[in-house]
């Protein structure tokens, strides 16, 4: 378990660890909202912000990057799908391949955004204790008295614990299957079956452990949880995020966008681009 960090909590005492969990949750919401636009400027701003966040946590970045390796295959697939499927345009930088500049551009931006979303989720789980997460969700669900808030918060924190656990189990089962040459099978039904059944069985055992642990610790739903108000100091980073979200969606990025397309023109019409720049000089 120790060789894998994605979606695990890492105990620590960094600024991000000490930041109020409710604000962290709000920040995550803001980031996903800001990442709706795939504009290069807003993506670049969020990249800087997230890299800074990862630096603050003092997490072993090497381990995290190794974890990202398995996700990169998924990102590559998304990129290829987008690059190949958007083939309406005429411009093809590599004539034998059915690839257009638009396809490559949207694919690259899409993958960049997905990578950022994954990193934001990872950073959030890295610095938030499941207990704090549960309390934060209870606090956010207070305005909705008709919802079973305690149960939702419990289930949410359980999901957060199951995510890394299932990843570990799937990795273990996949390694075991590869050792038995399972990856050479072509039939999709068999492939699904040999992956899912063992993962499901093993995780069901772990789930029972969780249930027993909850009961033996006297889990009750009518316990009252009261959290103190949020200090102003904790709210201020949210303002910074708001500014970044606004900057990403402002006309300023339109200016940046033309620069970006000028850069891409080089790949579209290399000869014209060179003659134009010679004219400019």
């Amino acid at each position: 378990m120790a060789d894998r960090l994605a979606f695990h909590y890492l105990p620590g005492d960094s600024l991000l660890h000490r930041w109020d969990a409710r604000c962290k949750l709000a920040a995550l919401l803001l980031i996903t909202f800001g990442l709706l636009h795939t504009r290069p400027l807003s993506l670049a701003l969020f990249t800087i912000l997230l890299l800074w966040g990862f630096r603050l946590t003092h997490a072993p970045l090497r381990t995290l990057l190794l974890d990202m390796k398995s996700w990169s295959l998924f990102l590559l697939m998304i990129f290829l799908l987008q690059a190949l499927s958007l083939s309406q345009g005429e411009m093809r930088p590599l004539p034998p391949l059915p690839v257009t500049v638009e396809g490559v551009e949207t694919g690259a931006l899409g993958c960049w955004r997905l990578g950022l979303m994954l990193s934001a989720g990872m950073l959030f789980t890295l610095v938030t204790r499941p207990q704090e997460m549960r309390e934060a969700i209870l606090w956010f669900l207070r305005p909705f008295p008709f919802l079973p808030a305690q149960r939702i918060a419990l289930m949410f924190s359980l999901v957060m614990r199951f995510l890394p656990l299932l990843l570990d189990e799937a990795e273990r089962v996949r390694t075991a299957s590869r050792a038995r040459l399972g990856h050479l099978r072509k039939n999709p039904f068999t492939r699904i079956k040999v992956l899912i059944v063992p993962v499901f069985r093993r995780s069901l055992l772990r789930a029972d452990d969780f249930a027993l642990a909850l009961v033996s610790r006297g889990y009750k739903e009518d316990l009252h949880v009261s959290l103190p108000g949020i200090a102003w100091l904790h709210l201020s980073p949210l303002l910074l995020l708001l500014v970044v979200v606004f900057l990403g969606s402002m006309p300023l990025s339109q200016v940046f966008r033309t620069e970006w397309s000028a850069f891409l023109d080089f790949f579209r019409y290399p000869v014209e681009w060179v003659t134009q720049s010679q004219n400019r000089l």
Binding site: F162, L167, F200, A211
Partner: peptide
């Protein structure tokens, strides 16, 4: 409680299912 935990397990499985792609 057991079913609560199982339902959470399935929620996590659905979430991870978004990343499991099998080519056919």
């Amino acid at each position: 409680i057991q079913l609560t935990v199982y339902a959470s397990l399935f929620a996590a499985l659905i979430a991870l299912g978004a990343y499991l792609a099998v080519p056919i």
